[in-house]
Design a protein around this nucleic acid. Structure first.
Lengths: 217, 217
DNA sequence: AATTCAAAAATATCAGATATTTTTATAAAC
DNA sequence: GTTTATAAAAATATCTGATATTTTTGAATT
């Protein structure tokens, strides 16, 4: 019922993380405490806490006695992230398809439907809604694997997704119709409980995205 | 050359993490800032920073406005952790065997040798050296996968290893000769570059450890 | 271009202070 | 006797401002 009494710390965490992902905070740039204090309107202690969290998730690099930096990007890192995402997400998808019940199917249908509405808008050129689109993309991918039964797996995946997302936002070019089709195919295979087919489309989806991003970097 | 000018924050981080892993800080217990301040002799800000880091790695649970707790344990969680470790470590091992060069082999031989010396001591009943033994165990497993070529994979694995380790320390019973043999077999298979065999021994190793722990909980 | 060194900037850390929220303990009510 | 309300106590979240160190910067010098 009640509005979550969000704490300043968690709000700051979300804002900084978002700014890193969308590239507003440039890869490799120094995160000076004093500067951040103004920008995010939080105290040093709160900021350090936030940055420490982001550091252990890997969005920020903390160098002892030298402060914090936005984690740099590199082709090798992108490849690693994509490969890990394949490993974890494909595994999770398989489990999810095996275990998913009617609720899972329902949520998945809903998520795919919403994503596809948004994809139409994107194809129609509404470039202004990239963030909303990416949110639906995330919700779709999450819905696919939601029934995997491992919260540990889901939380690792969520971080990986965001790291991958940062690279996507960085290159800023999307694959349009192609990716739409992949989403549809993996969605359909999942509903049909065709494990191998779904996993194979997912792998293709991620690997093509990787290739695309590598080419654009 | 010089002693790393360790910061209080990182020292505290290591101490608390260690205490959680070895069970000195009991699963589920409340981590009151005030109490910790005395116990670890650090200021509130430093402590919160530390706990935030541990929270995002999953050793601590942070509840908004209610403070920090040692992450509770459960059979389901143990199963998830073990399964994830199988997934990541087997994958890493495969890559490592494919890519490992002579340096890798050398380090691996050294690590296995040291581990086996320690295993002899343990079998001989030197119960007092459990921590040292576990360190060698860690170094051996790390040496096996060190050449996988993905630092992202290695850092995820390291956290998973520690989470799994906590459960091992908790049940406190070890599998003795059986595990020694598994280490040896996977070591030999790795040197022989027998990918499948090595991975299969590793999987067995972890899964038997899991079964053992589950039985003891 | 490389080295040196003091000044300036930034980090790491701490000790209070305050506003809120949660917990605990006590008392009143059904 | 459980439940419910309520005041007091405890704990969290957060900020400000101070200090000791370390790192960075900008000359001045070699």
């Amino acid at each position: 019922m009640s509005k979550k009494p969000n704490t300043i710390g968690s709000a700051t965490y979300q804002r900084i993380k978002r700014d890193i992902i969308i590239g507003k905070l440039a890869p490799g740039s120094k995160l000076k405490l004093d500067g951040l204090r103004q920008r995010y309107d939080a105290s040093m202690s709160t900021l350090r806490e936030t940055l420490s969290r982001l550091a252990s998730e890997g969005f920020v690099a903390a160098e002892e006695q030298r402060g914090f930096f936005v984690t740099p990007v590199s082709r090798e890192d992108l490849v690693e992230i994509a490969n890990l995402r394949v490993l974890l997400e494909c595994h999770a998808l398989q489990l999810s398809i095996e275990k998913g019940d009617d609720d899972w199917e329902g949520d998945l249908v809903a998520a795919h439907h919403k994503l596809s509405l948004m994809e139409k808008k994107m194809l129609a050129g509404q470039e202004d809604q990239i963030e909303a689109w990416k949110r639906y993309d995330w919700e779709f991918h999450l819905a696919m694997i939601a029934a995997c039964g491992s919260s540990n797996l889901l939380s690792l995946h969520s971080i990986l997704y965001d790291k991958y997302l940062r690279y996507q936002m960085l290159v800023l070019t999307n694959r349009g119709q192609e990716a739409v089709e992949e989403h549809f195919q993996m969605f359909r295979a999942a509903l049909a409980r065709d494990n191998n087919l779904a996993v194979s489309w997912l792998r293709t989806h991620i690997e093509k995205g990787l290739k695309h991003a590598l080419a654009a970097i």
